[in-house]
Nucleic acid binder design. Structure first.
Lengths: 196, 196
DNA sequence: TTCTTGATTGACTCGTCAGTCAATAACCGA
DNA sequence: TCGGTTATTGACTGACGAGTCAATCAAGAA
C-alpha cells in the first residue's frame, strides 16, 4: 500500500461513496462518517482532504458533470452531420445511466443547492451554458443565428423537464417516445424557415 | 383572543411561516422552533397540531398547490376558446408570483422529497395529473386524442423545464419570450394535422 | 361552582453530527 | 539515521434540534 500519492485515490473514493450515500438517502442528510466508512477511511480523513461536507458534495457534482460531458463526447464521436450531432446530445441526456437513482438524487439536490451556494450556481451555469453552446453551434449550420439560440433554449428546457419527469416516474412516455418528442420538435423548427 | 377554534388559524399561520422560513433558508434545514416563532406560537404547539416537521412541509406544499390551482382557475375564467384556455394554463404557470423565492425553494425541495416520501410523491402525481388532464381536455377539441396526450406531455415538461431555468436564473429569455416559446410550440403542433 | 376539554407553553431529553485535534505511523530525501 | 512531510485515526467538543411532557390557563357545559 503506497504511502504517498494517496490523495487522488482517496478523493475519488470519497466522491464515489458520497454519491452512493446521497443516492441511498435521497437527501443531503448524509453524515460525513457514513461517506468515509463507505470509502473505507475515517471521517477525519474526509475532512482532511475536503474540509467540509459541502466541498464533498460539490466535488461529487463536478464528477457527475464530468461523466456526463464524457458521455456527450462519446455519443458525438459517431455523429457526422450537424443534425446527427444534435440527436447525439439529446441521446446522451436520456441515457439510462443518467437515471440511476444516485444520479437523479444528486441532480435534484443540486438544483436546491444552486439557489444559495455560489459554487453550485456556478456549476449549474457551466452545465447549462455548455449544453446551450453545444446546441447552438450545431444549430447554426441549419438555421439562422437568432433562431438557433431560441431553439437551443427550448431544447435545454425541454430536456431538463423531461428528465425530471422521467426520473420521478411522472412521464407517460418511454425513453424512445421521449427522445422522439424532442427530435420531432427539432424537425419542425428546422423545417420551418429561418434558413441559413 | 378566542380560546376555541384556534386550530385552523394556527395551522394556517404555521404553514405561512414554514413557507417563509423555507424560502429564507432555501433548504429544509429549518427548525420547527423558528417556524413556530415566526408564526407567533411555541414549538410545542407546532408539534401539537402537525406531529412532525415533515407534516408541516407537506401541508405547506399542499397550500402552494392549492394557490396554484386557484390561479389557474382564475386565468381560466376570462378564457373562452379551448386555445385561450390552453394559453391561460400556460400563463398561470409563469405568473411572476410563482417565482417568489419561497415558492421556488418549496418546489425544488419538493422534487427532492418526492423521491422517497410517499405523500410527497402522491402530491406531485396529483399536480402533474391535473395539469395533464387540464391540457388534454382542451387539446382534445383541437386535435385527435393520441395527439392531445403527446402534446400535453410535451407541454408539461416544457413548462416545468422553463420554470426551473427561469427560477434559477438560467433562462436567457424573459417572461414573454418564454411564454411565446410555449405558445409557438402549441401553434405548430396544432396546425400540423391530426385534425379532430 | 366544578368538570371537561382545547389551547398553550417552554424546559428537558436524547440523539446526532460537523469539524477539530493530538497522536501515530510510514515513507523520503539528505 | 534523522527531520520533514504525508497519511491516517478516532476520540472529543460544542452545538443544535426534533419531539415529549407535565403543567397552566381559559372557556363553555352541567
Amino acid at each position: 500500500m503506497p504511502k504517498l500519492g494517496m490523495e487522488p485515490i482517496r478523493r475519488a473514493a470519497l466522491v464515489e461513496a458520497a454519491i452512493a450515500e446521497i443516492g441511498a438517502a435521497g437527501t443531503l442528510d448524509v453524515t460525513v462518517s457514513r461517506i468515509a466508512r463507505r470509502a473505507g477511511v475515517s471521517s477525519g480523513l474526509a475532512h482532511h482532504y475536503f474540509g467540509s461536507k459541502e466541498q464533498i458534495f460539490l466535488a461529487s457534482m463536478r464528477h457527475i458533470q464530468t461523466l456526463f460531458g464524457r458521455r456527450v463526447r462519446e455519443e458525438l464521436r459517431s455523429a457526422d452531420t450537424p443534425r446527427d450531432r444534435l440527436n447525439a446530445i439529446i441521446a446522451a441526456s436520456f441515457d439510462p445511466d443518467e437515471f440511476a437513482p444516485e444520479i437523479v438524487s444528486a441532480w435534484l439536490i443540486f438544483y436546491v443547492q444552486a439557489q444559495n451556494s455560489p459554487e453550485a450556481r456556478r456549476l449549474l451555469h457551466v452545465y447549462t451554458t455548455r449544453l446551450h453552446s453545444n446546441l447552438v453551434f450545431n444549430l447554426k449550420s441549419l438555421t439562422n443565428d437568432a433562431n438557433a439560440h431560441v431553439i437551443a433554449s427550448a431544447l435545454g428546457a425541454l430536456i431538463d423537464g423531461l428528465y425530471i419527469r422521467q426520473a420521478l416516474g411522472e412521464n407517460r412516455l418511454d425513453r424512445y417516445q421521449t427522445m422522439g418528442l424532442v427530435w420531432d420538435y427539432l424537425d419542425i423548427k428546422l423545417s420551418q424557415g429561418g434558413e441559413r
